Amino acid sequence: MIWDAGIGDRLGVARLQPTARALVWLTFSLALACESGGAPGGFEDDLGADSDALPPDLPQAECDPRRSGDCEAGQKCSHVTDTPFGPTNRCVELLGEGVAGDSCERVGDSDTCANHHLCWATDPDGLDGVCISFCSPGLACGGSGEVCSVATGGLLSLCLTKCDPFFQDCAEGWGCYADDYGVWTCDKDQSGDAGAHGDACACINCCNPGLTCVPGALVDAEGCGVEGAAGCCTEICDLDDEAPPEMVCPTEAERCRAFYDAGAVLMGYERVGLCEL
């Protein structure tokens, strides 16, 4: 199988993590930070007006959840998103024994899943999640129909169910979404009351099943684009659709454009396209 390592950069988005907070585009976050001007008591206050110093280094992962032995007894390595500078992997207290498919809940930075597992797809209160296993060090999965889905710059690698973006063959309340490397897996639909074509979005799974989140400038809808939402939902389309090109997508201005770059197509997904300007 071949996949495009630049798919995540093209979409510019990340999956919504298992906490209530979404990981928004890095560029979008930086834009907001620039507009804020810095909070009192922050890094800026330690610098003189003419200082050329750089901000502190972003947190480095202290462990790898795919390996054993990185953490002390009574701990496990987990993916943590509620940190001041973004997601990372670190050792947390081992609180449960839940394995893949078991129900779970998040407890602070930890959860009730066993070692090498993460409580995924929780509600905003950290409840009603499901234990998902991390991939092996070789990015392999042992479950039937599972594939290793890698996101967040390689920090997060989970064994999720492989799916078809056309059939949307995932459990109720879940949708088929692509990860940073263009691999399609089932993940919880986090769109809430939004998620339709042209709705603003801040993560790949913040759109209804059958749609995905792309830069707003690529979507023909009011409120999207340079002066609107940084990201908007658009429909997944079939490159082999026999309808006239102007009839395939929700608006006549959009066209069904290939999801993968030429020569970097995931086998079996050659027909996948996105409705874009």
Rank of each mutant, 00 (worst) to 15 (best):
K162W: 03
A73M: 08
V147M: 02
G175K: 10
D82V: 08
A151E: 15
T251A: 11
D123E: 14
L30V: 07
V265M: 05
P18Q: 13
P165H: 06
F166I: 08
D9K: 07
G175Q: 05
V272F: 07
C176G: 05
D4M: 11
W174Y: 14
T83P: 03
G48D: 04
R67C: 09
L30K: 07
I7P: 08
T112C: 14
P18E: 12
C176E: 00
E105P: 01
C213H: 09
T234G: 04
S110D: 11
E254Q: 15
V80C: 05
Y269G: 04
S36C: 08
D57H: 03
D169F: 04
C203K: 13
D240E: 14
L155I: 05
G182V: 10
S78C: 07
S157A: 14
R21L: 14
G210E: 12
P245I: 03
G145Y: 00
L156E: 13
T251W: 01
T83Q: 11
D102N: 07
K188Y: 13
L32A: 10
D187F: 12
R66Y: 00
A73N: 06
R257H: 03
D125F: 15
A22F: 14
G129W: 15
V92S: 04
P18K: 12
L95V: 12
G216M: 04
S157L: 02
D187V: 07
F43V: 13
C201A: 11
P87N: 06
Y177N: 00
C71F: 03
W184S: 06
L94S: 11
T19D: 15
S144C: 00
C131E: 04
L26Y: 08
L23A: 10
L155E: 04
F259W: 01
G108V: 01
G74N: 15
C232F: 01
V219P: 03
S78E: 11
H197S: 09
T83G: 14
A114V: 04
K188R: 15
V226P: 02
P65F: 00
E254D: 06
D164R: 05
M1V: 10
T251M: 02
A121D: 15
G41I: 12
E252T: 05
M1E: 09
V147K: 00
D57C: 03
V183K: 03
L158E: 06
D187P: 13
G108I: 09
E93T: 15
V24Y: 03
D52A: 07
V13G: 05
V219D: 00
E270W: 02
A229W: 01
A230V: 11
A61L: 00
R67D: 03
G143W: 01
C186T: 04
